[in-house]
């Protein structure tokens, strides 16, 4: 009986020891910590990414501003067109005048 319990303890202790060792090996304690400076290409890439992002934001702001201007101008022109004299007038207005002619109508 005692021997049986001792073997069980020994088995559990062995399994624990196995996992502890596994964890230790998985942690790569022998791998040297990098003490060198960060890769300059990575730094340049990061800086470029930030610059492009900033430019993108600026471009979006410009587009939004121009779109607003366009819409405003379109509304103004539509309004002007709506208020322009209609071609569908019912009574043509013409009379003999004594003003110097601006243009001559002739057989087309």
């Amino acid at each position: 009986m005692t021997s049986h319990v001792a073997r069980l303890y020994a088995l559990v202790a062995g399994v624990l020891a196995f996992f502890v060792i596994w964890a230790g090996v998985a942690a790569h304690p022998w791998a040297a910590k990098s003490t060198t400076a960060p890769d300059p290409r990575l730094i340049a890439l990061t800086a470029r990414q930030q610059r492009i992002h900033a430019e993108s934001v600026r471009a979006q702001q410009i587009v939004a501003r121009r779109w607003a201007t366009y819409r405003s101008e379109l509304a103004r022109r539509n309004n002007a067109a709506a208020n322009a004299p209609s071609v569908a007038v019912t009574a043509p207005a013409a009379r003999v005048v004594t003003l110097p002619p601006l243009v001559v109508t002739r057989v087309s």
């Binding site: 071609v87 007038v89 043509p92 013409a94 009379r95 004594t98 003003l99 002619p101 109508t105 087309s108």
Partner: peptide
């Protein structure tokens, strides 16, 4: 003012005119 002949000029305020 639109000349329709040597002697006559029409004043047009809207619409169109053709000869």
């Amino acid at each position: 003012p639109i000349a329709v002949s040597d002697e006559m000029t029409l004043g047009l305020t809207q619409g169109g005119l053709a000869t």
